[in-house]
Design a protein around this nucleic acid. Structure first.
Length: 874
RNA sequence: GGGGGCGUAGCUCAGUUGGUUAGAGCGUUUGCUUGACAUGCAAGAGGUCACAGAUUCGAGUUCUGUCGUCCCCACCA
């Protein structure tokens, strides 16, 4: 039999084991009608991305669930993939081209796309390799990409269906325009941040004399003003309604209109209306049939409609407008004003609301069924409070702008007829002839779709939809989606309504939401702060298992967590403990044949640990089923370290070294049995080290990844025996504490005198008690007198302990200690009898609770008597 | 303006449907080269569960309010 290394060194086996899993196809989900499928779709990381802690946590949680279900016998599919990340990737490629002195325009669309694909080939696989280092057991044979053929045909089909149903439309609307990326953005892609700005009050002269003062934070937009609005019931301005204003800096004549939108209490109570550059103004403009004058170009400079300001950057234009207004004596005042400014989530440029012709998805009809599905519990959020956030989004949703003025992405499958203007959307192929006029001058829409349009189809596009593939019919709908709360609006919500709309089924039954991984000080990890911790570096230092465990312990679903080296070290220490426990077991096994559990006579300690194991299995499986990964991990660590290592292994030593071969073989059988269970229980959390240790276990067995997950076995619960055995543990702990109290060195053996009813049980565990309590002899006596006058005493679960300590003990100190103990016992008696004298408690509380309380009271009364006797004897 | 989280040991956090003496890791105190492990072992110290009410036989847990703190959404120019 091969021997384990003396120290836990993950580097020696993690890569090797991953290769073994891959070679054996352990991750591959083969459709099996006999099995129940369990499917998880990996949130596809961006091809531009590098693995960060957020991914590491997300992947770890998914891998835990997948490995757990796989071991439970499900046909577990974890489907991996990457996202083309339209805007993020295009930004990177443009940057790269810029360094070479190239632009999109100079290169042309075709050449640009060729470079983009080359870029994808070069970097798109990087994150996939990083995922493997974590131990992710995904089915790489099904690796998907949002722009591969499968996903692209799903996008085409989805768009076509929406078009047929009139759920997509093209129109001029105010959208968020990013002058940096030169594309439209959806509402979700804008991030707001408070900035110190100014509020400029401008005086607009009325045609008939007098003036009206408006306030603005974006003076340059006044060049596109087409009205001034006041509240209809605002008396101050009642006389001006219907009159005209001469818009300064231009020669335009614009009306004063009345609109409910204006808040008379804010600012001057008069608002300049710029329909082309403000969403609210746009609405006002529609109500009053105002012209829409767009004064800005796509790159953030002013256009020819801005007159003398044409060609200036928006901020330069702002300065000039202010200066010119001041020169005209029309700048009434400037006041500081903090306001929220929208920024592009990719390049962080200040976003401009601009009127523009874009494609939109009509959201109202899609949102309703998506809300209902969660209300009706077809899809369940964990923790469920996130359902509220989901509702909140969907209930207030506006139409989704899906066109992007980019090249990298799914081109909008719409053609325009140059001859008659007909708009053509086809299910597949490229139309050659206009169905309306027969013309052949057809041009495809220049724009691509929002990246999230294809991600929204992820749970089924990856399985072959719209074709009725075997994968699709077997694995869909998926079971659980694991993701962070920050992308509920981007992704979760959109998958929900898309899944329901296209497949008539919710795309997943559960959504497990986790929080953010923060740095040691609780700050969000970010590139700009430079406070990100590289998971790969942590893996290099501690191994993937330690990282994984650190990411799930002490974490509650949905809550943010801080990542610290100390946490990884704690996990590493645990794994080291497990490693050494295994080493202990296996060193003792040597080349012996280990008997089956059923073939040996179980000792009390054996039944105790086996019973504790059953409890652990039950609680662990229950927690995993509820997605309480942190709790499950805690229970496993606690059982392994405390019950198994600190108690059972120590308890087994007298059997192993006592010279009784039957006992030795019995202890070995139990040690191997428990170790085997512990490894399988822990495998989803720390797959590498459990696989490695498993390979050293005696007997014929395959790999742990395909082993069965432990199941609770009521026949092995041994409730009564295990309960009784707790008394032995209490006895040992009490003796240990007694020795420490009097500074008796652990190496000095003491003589125990016990007054107890549990002579048989203690007798059966005599060796363990002597060894673990550090005692030389045990005598069962009827009273403490046998221990002599100068003895100390304590009451424990099985009875009363006396230890004659001769000169080692100070009578006065012991008396004081007993006095203190008596006070504590009195407190307990008061508490218990108080509870029991409460008629309501006795009458209304469950019977078991009342009985327990009575038993406790009796125990304390007994303890009090014994302690008092001891005090008197001193 | 709307919604949500958090406030528990020195620090970071768990705490399942209300029910023994409120837990863990780290830190800390004392002792220990105990035939797997000092990445360890044993024994400890350390908590008015933010505050005030309410419900209940019983509240860290449920409800109401207050304070502090963080986040998301909306975006009154």
């Amino acid at each position: 039999m091969k021997e384990m290394h003396t120290t836990y060194n993950p580097k020696e086996f993690e890569d090797k084991i991953y290769a073994q899993w891959t070679e054996r196809g352990s991750f591959r989900a083969e459709i099996d009608p006999q099995k129940v499928p369990f499917t998880v779709m990996m949130p596809p990381p961006n091809i531009t991305g590098q693995l960060h802690m957020g991914h590491a946590m997300d992947e770890t949680m998914q891998d835990i669930l997948i490995r757990f279900k796989r071991m439970q016998g499900y046909c577990a599919l974890w489907l991996p993939g990457t996202d083309h990340a339209s805007i993020a990737t295009e930004v990177k490629i443009v940057e790269q081209m810029k360094r070479e002195g190239l632009t999109k325009q100079s290169l042309g669309r075709e050449e640009f796309l060729r470079r983009a694909w080359a870029w994808k080939e070069q970097y798109g696989g990087r994150i996939v390799e990083q995922l493997k280092k974590l131990g992710s057991s995904c089915d790489w044979s099904r690796l998907a990409f949002t722009m591969d053929e499968r996903c692209s045909s799903a996008v085409r089909e989805a768009f076509f269906r929406l078009y047929q149903k009139g759920l997509v439309y093209r129109g001029d609307r105010i959208i968020n325009w990013c002058p940096g990326c030169k594309t439209a953005l959806s509402d979700a892609e804008v991030e707001y941040a408070e900035e110190a700005g100014h509020f400029w009050h401008f005086s607009y002269p009325l045609e008939e004399g007098g003036s009206i003062v408006v306030a603005t934070t974006r003076p340059e937009t006044m060049l596109g003003d087409t009205a001034v609005a006041v509240h209809p019931s605002d008396e101050r301005y009642a006389a001006y309604i219907g009159k005209y204003v001469r818009l300064p800096l231009t020669d335009r004549r614009i009306p004063v209109v009345a609109d409910e939108y204006v808040d008379p209490a804010f600012g001057t109570g008069a608002v300049k209306i710029t329909p082309a550059h403000d969403p609210n103004d746009f609405e006002v403009g529609l109500r009053h049939a105002l012209p829409v004058i767009r004064v800005m170009n796509d790159d953030g400079t002013m256009n020819e409609r801005a007159g003398v300001y044409a060609g200036l950057d928006r901020y330069e234009a702002r300065r000039r407008v202010i200066a010119d207004m001041q020169a005209l004596g029309l700048l009434v005042k400037t006041e500081p004003h903090a306001h929220n400014v929208g920024h592009c989530y990719r390049c962080h440029s200040t976003v401009e609301p601009i009127v523009s012709k874009q494609w939109f998805v009509r959201m109202k009809p899609l949102a309703k069924p998506a809300i209902d599905a969660v209300v009706k519990n077809k899809t369940k959020f964990t923790p469920d409070r996130f359902a509220k956030i989901y509702y909140n989004w969907l209930e207030n949703i506006r139409d989704w702008c899906i066109s992007r003025q980019l090249w990298w992405g799914h081109r909008i499958p719409v053609w325009y007829c140059d001859d008659c203007g007909e708009v053509i959307c086809t299910r597949e192929g490229e139309p050659a002839v206009c169905p309306k006029c027969g013309g052949t001058h057809l041009k495809q829409d220049e724009d691509v779709l929002d990246t999230w349009f294809s991600s929204a189809l992820w749970p089924f596009s990856t399985l072959g939809w719209p074709r009725e593939t075997d994968d699709f019919s077997y694995f869909y709908p998926t079971d659980v989606l694991v993701t962070g709360y920050d992308i509920i609006p981007f992704w979760v919500m959109r998958m929900m309504f898309s899944g329901i709309e296209y497949t008539q089924k919710v795309p997943f039954r559960d959504v497990l939401i986790h929080g953010l991984v923060r740095d040691e000080q609780g700050r969000k990890m970010s590139k700009s702060l430079g406070n990100g911790i590289d998971p790969l570096e942590i893996i290099d230092r501690y191994g993937a298992d330690s990282l994984r465990l650190a990411l799930v312990t002490g974490v509650a679903p949905g809550n943010d967590t801080r990542f610290t080296d100390a946490k990884v070290e704690a996990s590493r220490n645990f794994i080291n403990k497990l490693w050494n426990a295994a080493r202990f077991v296996l060193l003792n096994v040597k080349d012996d044949a280990v008997p089956a559990l059923s073939a040996i006579k179980l000792q009390p300690a054996d039944r105790w640990i086996i019973s504790r194991l059953q409890t652990c299995i039950r609680e662990c499986v229950l927690s995993l089923q509820k997605f309480d990964l942190g709790i499950a991990a805690d229970k496993l660590i606690d059982f392994t370290w405390n019950d198994f290592c600190d108690w059972y292994i120590e308890l087994s030593k007298p059997s192993l070294y006592g010279g009784d071969d039957e006992k030795r073989r019995g202890a070995l059988a139990v040690l191997v049995f428990v170790l085997d269970n512990v490894l399988r229980l822990l495998h989803p959390f720390i797959p590498f080290v459990t696989e490695e240790i498993y390979s050293y276990l005696p007997g014929e067995h395959g790999m742990i990844i395909s082993a069965e997950y432990p199941r609770y076995n009521s026949k092995l619960a041994y409730k009564k025996e295990a309960g009784a055995f707790e008394g032995i543990i209490d006895l040992i702990k009490t003796v240990r504490a007694m020795k420490v109290e009097v500074n008796c060195p652990p190496s000095k053996k003491v003589h125990l005198y016990l007054v107890t009813d549990s002579r048989r049980l203690i007798g059966a565990n005599r060796g363990s008690v002597l060894r673990l309590a550090g005692a030389s002899e045990i005598d069962f006596v009827d009273s403490g007198a046998a221990a002599g006058d100068k003895a100390m005493s304590r009451v424990c679960e099985p009875g009363q302990i006396f230890i004659p300590l001769g000169e080692l003990i100070d009578i006065e100190e012991e008396r004081a200690r007993l006095q203190k103990e008596l006070e504590r016992i009195d407190g307990e008696i008061a508490r218990a009898s108080g509870k029991l004298s409460n008629h309501n408690f006795v009458a209304k509380a469950p019977k078991k609770l009342v009985d327990d309380e009575r038993a406790k009271l009796e125990k304390y009364i007994d303890m009090k008597t014994k302690t008092q006797q001891r005090l008197a004897a001193l």
